[in-house]
Every structure is written in structure tokens, then in C-alpha cells.
Design a protein around this nucleic acid. Structure first.
Length: 456
RNA sequence: GCGGCUAUCGUCCAAUGGUAGGACAUCGGUUUGUGGUACCGAGAACCUGGGUUCAAUUCCCAGUAGUCGCCCCA
């Protein structure tokens, strides 16, 4: 009976707790913890990025998570979903209208102008990594807080930059083990040729208005370019015969696109021209691209970007051609998991220290410090008393050697070195522990190498 | 922002209109100073609120969250 009472008490106690603060123990919608088990992937991604950006001449920049809301409205554009429905906007105590950044480029562009980077030798290449925020409906691979890595190049209008950037993206993904990717590229032209094109496109869709879906009928007035991106069957059919941006570029834009394709061919990068690719940020000009994974049928892109030659000027800087792209890091993690890419293994200890008795515990603390000073990663379970328990733990950790100090060894200033594979053990003096362990580890490594060689 | 599906120990999965069982994991034990296997044991859960009912974890509704599709994007 007492058992029943305790259970009941627990239940009521818990209920009270929940009533007080029901959502205290829950991440808020669309936000997630990155637990230790997943950190391996994140470490790998960060390591690859840190290694890659300097190789291509990029410099790291960090900008605030919070900016004036208008910065994003001005750069991304009113009427886009990112601005109209997905922005985390709020007022500060000082009544400033601010927003959590929905992407990284706007802040970087702002920093470029604010700090007068235009006087620096061009091109200026900036790398940024951090969380961005979009108030969207969450699902797998799509979070309200997610991480992006951004590469932006300012001050060079040549299409060779576009190509190099795509190559950089390819190289990063490849280093992560993500090889089955395809670049979707398109050119949406500059502001001049786009105006002409939009007129033509609107005229075309107007003539086929009846065959369009509801939302697309609305888009005809707000943003006809987006109809090309509609997934509805009937709209896709109409879109197939629609005039394509690529065919209606001005001379300058056409040359630019042609050059880009030549460079991509030269680099032998896996790309297809996707005339339907539009992208939802208004600042893009000329080149736009997305990176799709082909490992399964999903259409979720791993990243994307494009040229934004007008953005800096539009924000009040001097006319500056620019191009950039962002990678969705959460999606990279998903992709790495899906293809079971080798993650960065956390270094696992090869040595375990077991102790028995108070004096031995003191000695083993010192021994642990000694191992650490010698760069030998060591595990312990000092909190446990019994040797059996400690060896069990050592075994679970998969260590190669366990160092045992008992009462006797503590008094003699010796240590038992136990080979966990053969089970054999020997007693050595404290001074000889480190060299002996190092020697044994070397031998182990040799045998592992030999085994691997044999397999090959 | 719209529509569908889902919600049980830390994890994965059961059962049930009368408050729940297993597996894995965790912790402890199988006599005192020796691991791996085996055996025994312990702790640990019905998302929240409302309704129907004598009684709801179970049925209904709402909320919340996750997931899928759309929209959009990374």
C-alpha cells in the first residue's frame, strides 16, 4: 500500500507543477536544441567552413541578430513572403522598430556601407555564419531559428565570380561528403530587361488567365514572376510555354549568363538551367541559383543565392556589383544523416583510471592530471567505489588500457597497467607509467594499422 | 497563413472506458581488489484544458507541439 500512496503523491505534485507553468519545459515552436549526439555533425560543418572560406579569400564578419526592420524591408522587398509574413518584428523600449534577421545578406550589406568598405581593394569577400529567424510553419528541415553560412562578394561584376562562388559551394558540400548535388541556375536579368520581360509575361498569363489556379490569378497582379514557380499541374502547363527570362535578357545580361555557363562547363560542375527558378528575394539580379540534393526525391534546397548588383546602391551606398549565397546548415545536417556521412568522431579516451580506497583516490587524481599533461586522453569514474563497477565502465568506454591504483599500489607508489584486450597486467612505478602507456598505445596503433592494411 | 496525420517511461513500441506492459538505456546487486557474457532487482511515462460518463490515458472538442503536403525558403 505505501507504494500506491507515493505514486499518487507524485502524480499530484507533477500536476501542480504543470499548472504553474505549463510550457516551461518545452522549446518554443520551431526552435530546437542541438544535443550532444548531433554536435558531431555541426562540428564537422563548422570545421569544413572554417577551412574553406580563407582558401577562397574570404574574411569573417559577424553582424547583429537584430537590425532595424526597415533594413530588411528595403533590401528583401515589400510583397515577399519573407517580409510580409515571416519576419520577427518588434518594438524596443525606445520604440525602434526592429526585427530578428531573416537572412544574413542585408546585415552584411549594411555593414559594408556603414564601415566604408568601398575604399578597400576589390573584390571584398565576406563570410558569415549564424542563426536567422523566420516565422514560418515549422517542419523537418525548416525551423523558425536556423543556421546559415553566407558567402558574399562585393565589387566585381564579372561572371567569373558567380562561377567561383558556385564552385566554392560545391567544394564545401563535397568536403562534407554530400556529393550527389545539382545546381539549378537561371538569370532573371537586370532591372531594365526585367521590366520588359515582366510586361511580356503578364500579357502572356493574362491571356491564359482561365487556366491558372486561384493563387496564381492573384499573383498576376502582385508578383507574376512567382507563377513560374507554382507547383499546381495546370499552372505548370501554362508556365511551360511562357516566355522565359533567359530569352529576353538585354545584351549585357545575356553575355553575363553565357559567360557563367562557360565557366561552369570549364569547372565541370553539375548544373542545369532552370528557367522556372525565380527566388523570393527582390534584390536578386542576373544570376540566381539553388543547390539541390539528389539523394532522394525531396526538393528541399540545401542553399541558394544570386547576384544583387543593385542592393548596395538601393540601400544608399555607391553602385556596387555583388553576389552571394547561403547554405542552410540544419539541412546539411539532415542530409549528412541521410547519406550517413562520416561525422567528426569525438576523440574517445583510450585510458581509464580505476582506484580503490581513499589514499588511492588521491593518488589517482594526480595520475589523471599527469596523463592530461602528457596529452593522453583519459577517462575515470572516481565517484564509484568498487573495482568491478569501474572496470565495467572502462569496458563500456572501450578503452585499451586501465590503470589501477589500490591500497597496496598507493603505498608502494606503483600502478597496475591492465591491457583491456588481452587482460594481462603488469605493475610499474609511478615514473614509468607515462612511457609504458605511450609504448603500449603505439603498439596498439601499429596493430590497427596492420589490420587495416591487410583488409585492403 | 491553409489542409492531413500524430502525441504513453530518457529512447523505441504495446495494452486499456475502471490510472498502464515490454525492449534498449540508466542505476544497483550476484560476498569482501578485476571488465566484456549471463542472472536478479530498482527508478522512470499516459501533452494541456474542457466536455460526455458513476468512472477518461482511452470517446468528443479546443489548445499546444511534432510531422507531412501547400505556400515559401535554407
Amino acid at each position: 500500500m505505501p507504494r500506491k500512496t507515493t505514486k499518487k503523491n507524485k502524480v499530484t505534485a507533477k500536476k501542480t507543477k504543470v499548472v504553474v507553468e505549463p510550457l516551461l519545459l518545452q522549446t518554443i515552436r520551431g526552435m530546437k536544441d542541438v544535443l550532444p549526439g548531433e554536435q558531431l555533425y555541426w562540428n564537422k560543418i563548422r570545421a569544413v567552413l572554417d577551412k574553406s572560406y580563407p582558401k577562397y579569400g574570404f574574411q569573417r564578419i559577424d553582424t547583429p541578430l537584430v537590425e532595424y526592420a526597415n533594413l530588411f524591408v528595403r533590401s528583401i522587398g515589400e510583397g515577399t513572403d519573407v517580409i510580409d509574413k515571416e519576419m520577427y518584428k518588434f518594438s524596443t523600449k525606445g520604440r525602434d522598430r526592429v526585427a530578428l534577421r531573416p537572412e544574413l545578406t542585408a546585415g552584411i550589406a549594411r555593414a559594408y556601407i556603414q564601415h566604408g568598405m568601398n575604399i578597400l581593394p576589390k573584390p571584398i569577400k565576406l563570410f558569415c555564419i549564424g542563426p536567422v529567424y523566420r516565422y514560418d510553419r515549422p517542419q523537418e528541415g525548416r525551423y523558425r531559428e536556423h543556421w546559415q553560412a553566407n558567402f558574399d562578394i562585393f565589387g566585381e561584376k564579372d561572371a567569373v565570380m558567380d562561377a567561383q562562388l558556385i564552385q566554392l559551394a560545391h567544394s564545401v558540400l563535397s568536403s562534407l561528403g554530400i556529393k550527389n548535388v545539382q545546381f539549378q541556375v537561371n538569370s532573371i536579368g537586370c532591372s531594365e530587361c526585367r521590366e520588359n520581360y515582366l510586361d511580356m509575361l503578364t500579357a502572356y498569363f493574362e491571356s491564359k488567365k482561365r487556366k491558372l489556379c486561384k493563387t496564381c490569378k492573384a499573383r498576376l497582379k502582385t508578383n507574376p514572376l512567382r507563377i513560374l514557380d507554382c507547383k499546381e499541374d495546370k499552372c505548370v502547363q501554362v508556365s511551360t510555354n511562357a516566355p522565359q527570362t533567359v530569352d529576353h535578357l538585354c545584351n549585357d545580361c545575356r553575355d553575363h549568363f553565357k559567360n557563367l555557363l562557360e565557366y561552369l562547363d570549364e569547372l565541370n560542375l553539375p548544373y542545369v538551367i532552370n528557367p522556372q527558378l525565380v527566388r523570393g528575394l527582390d534584390y536578386y539580379t542576373k544570376t540566381v541559383f539553388e543547390i539541390w540534393s539528389l539523394s532522394d526525391g525531396s526538393k528541399k534546397s540545401l542553399g541558394g543565392g544570386g547576384r544583387y548588383d543593385g542592393l548596395i546602391k538601393n540601400l544608399g551606398g555607391e553602385e556596387t556589383p555583388a553576389i552571394g549565397f547561403g547554405l542552410g546548415l540544419d539541412r546539411l545536417v539532415l542530409e549528412m544523416k541521410r547519406i550517413k556521412a562520416k561525422s567528426y568522431e569525438a576523440p574517445s579516451p583510450k585510458i581509464f583510471i580505476a582506484q580503490l580506497g581513499n589514499l588511492a583516490k588521491k593518488k589517482s587524481l594526480n595520475l589523471f592530471a599527469k596523463m592530461e599533461r602528457n596529452g593522453i586522453l583519459t577517462a575515470e569514474s572516481f565517484g564509484r567505489g568498487s573495482l568491478k563497477k569501474q572496470l565495467r565502465t572502462a569496458n563500456k568506454l572501450g578503452v585499451l588500457i586501465t590503470l589501477i591504483i589500490g591500497q597496496k599500489e598507493a603505498l608502494d607508489d606503483t600502478v597496475i597497467i591492465k591491457n583491456m584486450i588481452t587482460g594481462t597486467q603488469e605493475v610499474v612505478t609511478q615514473e614509468k607509467v607515462v612511457p609504458s602507456v605511450k609504448k603500449m598505445l603505439k603498439m596498439k596503433q601499429m596493430t590497427i594499422i596492420k589490420k587495416k592494411a591487410k583488409k585492403k
